[in-house]
């Protein structure tokens, strides 16, 4: 029979961990659902031992095992935990201890140094942060003139693939006549890499400075392209001014649609009927008086190439109008058809 090594519990470490995790690990009764659900089990013989890590945090043990750095903060364990243990917070605290003991992985200190010297985690020159927008003539954010600060973030500023996301969003915001500005070279990093790598004191320092920039610039509504940036602004930043409201751009676009600024001019409560309701599908409407003619022209004006609907009468009316006045590339599709296409249309 194997005998386990005797282990000594370190009271000082126990206190420190308890303080870092704010007692978050105490709730755990070691059922192990977390380890079982962890997606590392899908790709590794040895899954990420979430339960053991939480146990260590409870006992004040700290092993320099690399497993701690596997966690992607996906939070599936948190969702399934019967005791609602904030596992990601616990893991961050364990990581912070590693920073204090200089037991991180190779390459991680360099990421933080890049944040420190370059204001981005990609070791890119800070002076070129605004270069992605060359030719777009984006105005610098001015609280007096702009309703929104577009927070581009490090990855969209420097990574070629991600730059096209920022460019696309600019196009959409302009189409909706949103008055927005950017901070360009002066845009501070949100600090998310420091937080997720577990260097909490450094993250807090970045958050303080970045929040101060937003405060000085009078930023109220901020639209972040990266959900990681949005998450830290929303959930991990110190209380910003009353009225500071970060959004992820998808949320913001939804707002624009909801308020009728994006998409059809006539939408939601004021959306234009195709003309086939109220029994009028069975009553002839003279050419020139058909709502569906107007509706497809409105659709074309938004730049859309598909008119989606969820009603067979709409499809009939709109397609009749399209036949009478073909608009290049425009199609009418039912939502069910779009969904089937997304699944890879079956015969």
């Amino acid at each position: 029979m194997e005998t386990a090594e005797p282990r000594t519990l370190d009271d000082g470490l126990w206190d420190r961990l308890s303080e870092l995790t704010e007692g978050a690990a105490d709730l755990c009764y070691q059922c192990g659902v977390c380890t079982a659900i962890c997606p590392w089990g899908l790709v590794r013989e040895e899954p990420l031992p979430v339960r053991t890590l939480v146990r260590h945090a409870q006992l004040g043990l700290s092993d320099a095992q690399d497993a701690l750095w596997l966690c992607t903060a996906c939070a599936q364990c948190e969702v399934t935990c019967p005791r609602q243990v904030p596992v990601v917070t616990v893991i961050r605290a364990l990581r912070q201890l590693r920073w204090e003991r200089r037991q991180t992985l190779k390459g991680l200190p360099s990421v933080l140094w890049s944040l420190y010297w370059n204001n981005n985690p990609w070791s890119q020159p800070p002076s070129r942060r605004g270069n992605w927008a060359q030719g777009l003539e984006l105005p610098t954010y001015d609280a007096e003139k702009h309703e929104v600060l577009l927070y581009v973030g490090c990855t969209c500023s420097y990574d070629r693939r991600a730059q096209s996301i920022a460019g696309a969003l600019v196009k959409v915001l302009r189409a909706a006549d949103v008055r927005f500005g950017v901070l360009g070279e002066g845009e501070p990093c949100c600090g998310e890499p420091a937080l997720s790598l577990g260097h909490l004191p450094y993250f807090e320092e970045i958050a303080q400075k970045t929040a101060e920039v937003f405060r000085e610039r009078g930023v109220r509504r901020l639209v972040a392209i990266s959900p990681h940036a949005f998450d830290v602004f929303q959930n991990h930043y110190p209380a910003l001014d009353e009225g500071f409201r970060p959004s992820h751009y998808v949320q913001y676009l939804a707002d624009l649609v909801r308020t009728g600024r994006l998409g059809f001019d006539r939408s939601l409560d004021l959306a234009l009927c195709c003309g086939g309701g109220g029994g009028r599908a069975w009553i002839e409407t003279p050419a020139g008086e058909r709502f569906s003619d107007l509706r497809i022209r409105e659709a074309a004006a938004t730049g859309a190439s598909v008119i989606a609907t969820a009603c067979p009468l709409c499809v009939a009316c709109l397609e009749d109008s399209l036949r009478a006045q073909p608009l290049a590339g425009m199609q009418v599709l039912d939502v069910a058809e779009i969904a089937a296409r997304a699944l890879g249309e079956t015969a």
């Binding site: 190779k106 200190p109 933080l112 420190y116 260097h199 320092e205």
Partner: peptide, 11 residues
């Protein structure tokens, strides 16, 4: 080598 990051307990 990889320079250690600052120690925030003494920063």
């Amino acid at each position: 080598n990889e320079p250690r990051f600052m120690d925030y307990r003494i920063k």
